[in-house]
C-alpha cells in the first residue's frame, strides 16, 4: 500500500509483462477502479494520441510526486522534478522494453531526477554553510529547547547517507518492495535490503534516548 491512500495492485493479465496492468483500488488519479494497460497506453502515446499522454500523466503523477517530494521536501523543487520526470519519460518512452513495470521504470527516472536536484541543492547549501555556521555560533540560545521524537526522527532521516535515506523512504514510508526499489535505484534487491537494515539500525541507535516512547505503542 502506498500510504497516501493509493493501493496499487498488479493484475497478471497483460502478456506484455507480468503485472503490468494496474488496478488502483482507491485514490484520486485515475478514477477509482480504473485500469491502465501499459502496452496499449505506450502504443497510443507513440501513435500521437494526446489523450493517452494525459492519461499516462494522470495515472502516475501522484506516485511520482510522492517519491520526489519525499526526497527533496520542497514544493517548487518537487514540481520541477515531476515535470522533468515526465518530459524525460516522453522522450525515452521508445526505450521502455517492459523489463519492469511502467510505473517502476518511471520511478527510476524520478529517482534520478530527484537525486540531481538534491545534489544541486547540496552544492548551494555548501556555499552558504559558513554563514549558517556563524549564525549558530552567534545565537546559541536558539537551540535550548529539546526536540521531540518526531523532530529528532526527521532530523536523523535527513542525516542518513543518501542510499540509506532513499531506500528507507521508498520502503518504510512509501511502501515499495525491495524489487521495485532495486529497479528504481539500479541496484540488486539484496542491496536495498541491506541499506534498509542499516538505515533502521542507525535510526534506532540515534534515537536511543526515546526508546521508551518508541516501544510504547
Amino acid at each position: 500500500m502506498h500510504p497516501g491512500g493509493e493501493w496499487l495492485r498488479r493484475v497478471p493479465r497483460n502478456p506484455f509483462q507480468a503485472g503490468c496492468v494496474y488496478v488502483l483500488s482507491h485514490g484520486s488519479n485515475p478514477a477509482p477502479g480504473s485500469q491502465v494497460d501499459d502496452k496499449q497506453l505506450i502504443g497510443r502515446i507513440q501513435a500521437g494520441d494526446p489523450a493517452a499522454e494525459r492519461q499516462f500523466f494522470e495515472t502516475y503523477a501522484d506516485r511520482i510526486h510522492r517519491i520526489v517530494y519525499r526526497f527533496v521536501g520542497d514544493p517548487e523543487a518537487a514540481q520541477d522534478c515531476v515535470q522533468e520526470t515526465f518530459i524525460r519519460a516522453f522522450d525515452r518512452l521508445g526505450t521502455f522494453r517492459g523489463e519492469s513495470a511502467l510505473g517502476t521504470w518511471l520511478g527510476s527516472i524520478a529517482v534520478s531526477v530527484a537525486l540531481n536536484a538534491l545534489r544541486g541543492r547540496k552544492r548551494d547549501e555548501k556555499r552558504h554553510a559558513p554563514w549558517e555556521a556563524a549564525e549558530a555560533v552567534a545565537a546559541p540560545s536558539a537551540r535550548v529547547s529539546e526536540p521531540d521524537l518526531k523532530t529528532r526522527l526527521h532530523a536523523e532521516i535527513d542525516q542518513l547517507p543518501e542510499g540509506y535515506r532513499m531506500v528507507f523512504l521508498l520502503h518504510d514510508v512509501e511502501g515499495y518492495t525491495h524489487e521495485e526499489i532495486g529497479t528504481m535505484l539500479g541496484v540488486q534487491s539484496g542491496t536495498s535490503k541491506a541499506q534498509l537494515f542499516r538505515a533502521r539500525a542507525r535510526l534506532r541507535d540515534r534515537l536511543a534516548d526515546f526508546a521508551p516512547e518508541v516501544s510504547s505503542t
Binding site: G4, N29, R70, F71, V82
Partner: peptide
C-alpha cells in the same frame, strides 16, 4: 520498523496534493 517510528516517518516531507492541471 517500530509502529511509532513508522507513523512519525510518514510526516517526513509529507507531500501536499499535486496541482495536476498546472503541472501538465
Amino acid at each position: 520498523l517500530e509502529p511509532r517510528l513508522r507513523e512519525l516517518a510518514q510526516g517526513y516531507n509529507a507531500p501536499p496534493a499535486l496541482d495536476h492541471e498546472a503541472t501538465w
